[in-house]
Design a protein around this nucleic acid. Sequence first.
DNA 1: AAAGCTGCCAACCGCCTCATA
DNA 2: ATATGAGGCGGTTGGCAGCTT
Length: 547
Amino acid sequence: MMVESDDGVLSKDQMGSSLIEKGKDKDKGNIDGVVLKKGPWTSAEDAILVDYVKKHGEGNWNAVQKYSGLSRCGKSCRLRWANHLRPNLRKGAFSADEERLIVELHAKMGNKWARMAAYLPGRTDNEIKNYWNTRIKRRQRAGLPLYPSELRMQAMQEGQQSSGFHGINDANNGFFERSSGQIPDVVFDSLKANQGAFSFVPKLSDVSASSLLMKSLEPPHFANLGPGALNCQKHLQESIYMYSGFSGNPKDAFSSSNPFEDSRCEKIARSFEYPYHDPVEENSLPSFDAVQGCHSFTNGFSSTPEPIPEALELELPSLQFIETDLGSSWDSSPSPPTLLESVDRLIQSPPRSIKLDSECPSPCNNGLLETLVYEAKTLSSAKNQSSDKSSNSSAPTPGDISSSSLNFYKTEWDEYGDPISPLGHSATSVFNEQTPVSASGSSLDDRLHADIFPVSNFKLESFNQFQSPAREQEFPTQYDYTRPDALLASSGWFGFQSGSFKAQGAPMPDSMASLLGDDDLTSDSKQTAEAYSWNNMPAVCQISELP
DNA sequence: AAAGCTGCCAACCGCCTCATA
DNA sequence: ATATGAGGCGGTTGGCAGCTT
């Protein structure tokens, strides 16, 4: 883009954009009647600013205009200095190491560009942000997960080997830390050395699905479910957008069962220049078959059996999709997807639209949360219908609703012959995948709690907002549904009924059983598990318990 | 060759936090 | 305790360049 000439003459572009605005407040370009310029900086302006900083140092940016005569607002000066003029700035393309680190950092921090920039010397938050946004677009377009399989695999391996996720045991310090600004050292292992051609460096024990999940559940996002529901929705959409490997491009999403059948996608994918070699994704890109019936969770048009292109761009938080396909999830795959992969798939594979007649009104544009409620109702309705048809005359209990939903989904998916749950790998599969039979059960349980429950909790909060009196009956009040463990134990919302798990013929790991309130367990162990989970819940989740 | 698309980049905007008066 | 200003941050926008169709 250009812009400026060295003699400071404005280009036509600059002339057009260097607005001279009058009558606005200081933030809008007018200080004490002095008209402040906007738009691209000229080299002359740069020189003035540099000179000013040399003399006065950084800071007090609003004084720049006063002392140097530069017709720029303080903010603009600060930005210009920080992003372009300050010494030791590193320009040019990101190196592979930098890119890798960005991915890691993003997995950990989310969109905390400034914090990320602190670990990329010479780079600015703006650069990182731009890079990330571009990267997201590319990967989304190609239907690739946002995080490479190595990263996810690493998370899995680390998770199984380590004694526990860093920080997971301490909700205030580690992985979910939100206030300290500290980052566990593990993140920087990748900085310590170029450990060869991606012997994939970083210890990602703390870069797990939980980070992804928590990303969308961060206080600024999560807490807004109250008065700031709109904001929350926006943030949630953003969050999912960020983590969605699912392309928002309807063409990409629906034109081909294999994105690489689309030459355009192929080119895009090949253009990734991604520091991670990702053979998994290369060879098994998410089948858009799975997307084809794209569950309208993605956009709130849940009653619409056919995908609505426009809606796809809404990028709703697919993280909410808790998998109910226990059948596939409990398959004893030799190499189960990693935790992160689970999240990726969870994100990538929005559930299919369910074609069924429902008495439930469509949530249409009412948003994701309504959609969730609607979906639950729909599934419940479907179950009731199928129950009527079947010989099973047992009346469903409230708790059965979710499990019936499971069955329904399973049936639907079986019909499609899709081995991958349309809801993706989510909680159940994650449980399965991430819960080796462990006598100690400690760290893993912790991780599970931390990784899974935040989502559940979020869902619950979301759900609560739309909870009807009738539903309140379905969800007995003795459950504190603001508590994710209680949620799971109750099986009320997403069908995590212990019986459902058992019905799948898969042994329930002790750790999970305890979470789910398995009756076979002693009350002590359940209490321990509950206390454990609750005490280790990220603060954001516990906050929700407050009145 | 022209139009369209995408990536990249710079800059702005609004909101938030924090320090200070 | 409150108001105000400075600075910081994240989201968004808009324009140019390069590539593709």
